[in-house]
Computed example of a mutant assay.
Amino acid sequence: MSAERQLLIIEDDTAFARTLSRSFERRGYDVLLATQQDEAAVLLREHNPGYAVVDLKLEGNASGLACVQMLHKHNPDMLIVVLTGFASLATAVEAIKLGACQYLAKPSNTDDIEAAFNHVAGATEIELTNRSTSIKTLEWERIHQVLVEADFNISEAARRLGMHRRTLARKLEKQRVK
């Protein structure tokens, strides 16, 4: 099948990956599934997908950002959408810098992802707000920035933030995006 309709999904939640896969297959995509970067690299030896969906946080605290980088190196024209339940400004910026075309917070469905594939160019019509950023938002973004820098290692991120590991874990649990 041509790369135009081939999609690689890198997601460690097998139930979600299976559901997403079936939904995209109904839309005419040839879907390849991987749960981690190594599996995706093996698939890329034989396939050249034109699309990819990558979970930001993979099993064992592996970062999907490394997958984005690998996919972009493999095919700079591939349209890559990053999905995450741990959205932050820092990870969104890094994902785009590494080659993703869009960054979506979970829950996202097939319609959202396909719309993201079709909305690659930026839009100047986005409304600018006059609202300043809250302290909670700044704290949340800083926590995620440090998590990215620490490769999602909670103990290391807590050390860098100067807080107890359990305190950081509680903050992450409270703010989890499902």
Results as ranks from 00 to 15, higher is better:
residue 27 R to C: 06
residue 27 R to L: 13
residue 27 R to D: 09
residue 28 G to R: 06
residue 29 Y to N: 01
residue 31 V to Q: 08
residue 32 L to C: 03
residue 32 L to P: 05
residue 32 L to I: 06
residue 33 L to A: 11
residue 33 L to W: 04
residue 34 A to D: 10
residue 37 Q to I: 15
residue 38 D to H: 13
residue 40 A to D: 13
residue 41 A to K: 12
residue 41 A to P: 00
residue 41 A to F: 01
residue 42 V to K: 12
residue 45 R to T: 11
residue 45 R to M: 15
residue 46 E to K: 11
residue 46 E to C: 08
residue 46 E to Q: 12
residue 47 H to V: 07
residue 49 P to L: 02
residue 51 Y to L: 07
residue 51 Y to F: 13
residue 54 V to G: 13
residue 56 L to G: 04
residue 56 L to S: 01
residue 58 L to C: 01
residue 58 L to N: 07
residue 59 E to K: 12
residue 59 E to T: 02
residue 59 E to G: 05
residue 60 G to C: 04
residue 61 N to R: 14
residue 63 S to I: 07
residue 63 S to V: 07
residue 63 S to F: 11
residue 64 G to T: 00
residue 64 G to Q: 10
residue 66 A to I: 04
residue 67 C to V: 15
residue 70 M to T: 15
residue 71 L to W: 04
residue 72 H to S: 14
residue 73 K to M: 05
residue 74 H to G: 08
residue 78 M to V: 02
residue 78 M to A: 04
residue 79 L to E: 02
residue 79 L to A: 05
residue 81 V to M: 12
residue 82 V to P: 03
residue 82 V to D: 08
residue 83 L to Y: 03
residue 85 G to I: 06
residue 85 G to V: 07
residue 86 F to I: 03
residue 87 A to C: 02
residue 87 A to P: 15
residue 89 L to Q: 13
residue 90 A to H: 09
residue 92 A to N: 02
residue 92 A to L: 07
residue 92 A to I: 11
residue 92 A to G: 11
residue 94 E to Q: 14
residue 94 E to V: 00
residue 94 E to N: 03
residue 95 A to P: 10
residue 95 A to Y: 14
residue 97 K to S: 07
residue 98 L to V: 00
residue 98 L to H: 01
residue 98 L to N: 02
residue 100 A to M: 04
residue 103 Y to D: 15
residue 103 Y to A: 04
residue 104 L to K: 11
residue 105 A to Y: 02
residue 105 A to E: 07
residue 105 A to K: 13
residue 105 A to M: 05
residue 106 K to H: 06
residue 107 P to S: 01
residue 109 N to A: 12
residue 109 N to C: 01
residue 111 D to S: 07
residue 115 A to W: 08
residue 115 A to G: 07
residue 116 A to V: 05
residue 118 N to T: 00
residue 118 N to E: 11
residue 119 H to D: 08
residue 120 V to A: 15
residue 124 T to D: 08
residue 125 E to D: 15
residue 125 E to T: 13
residue 125 E to M: 06
residue 125 E to S: 10
residue 125 E to F: 14
residue 128 L to T: 04
residue 128 L to K: 05
residue 128 L to V: 15
residue 129 T to C: 09
residue 129 T to H: 06
residue 130 N to M: 11
residue 130 N to R: 08
residue 130 N to P: 03
residue 133 T to A: 00
residue 135 I to K: 11
residue 136 K to N: 06
residue 136 K to V: 06
residue 136 K to F: 09
residue 137 T to M: 08
residue 138 L to R: 13
residue 141 E to D: 15
residue 142 R to Y: 07
residue 143 I to Y: 00
residue 143 I to K: 01
residue 144 H to W: 11
residue 145 Q to A: 12
residue 148 V to A: 08
residue 148 V to E: 14
residue 149 E to A: 06
residue 150 A to T: 13
residue 150 A to E: 11
residue 151 D to F: 10
residue 151 D to H: 14
residue 153 N to H: 14
residue 153 N to C: 11
residue 155 S to Q: 09
residue 156 E to H: 13
residue 156 E to Q: 14
residue 157 A to Q: 07
residue 160 R to Q: 14
residue 162 G to K: 00
residue 162 G to L: 00
residue 162 G to R: 02
residue 163 M to E: 09
residue 163 M to P: 03
residue 166 R to G: 01
residue 169 A to N: 01
residue 169 A to G: 03
residue 174 K to P: 00
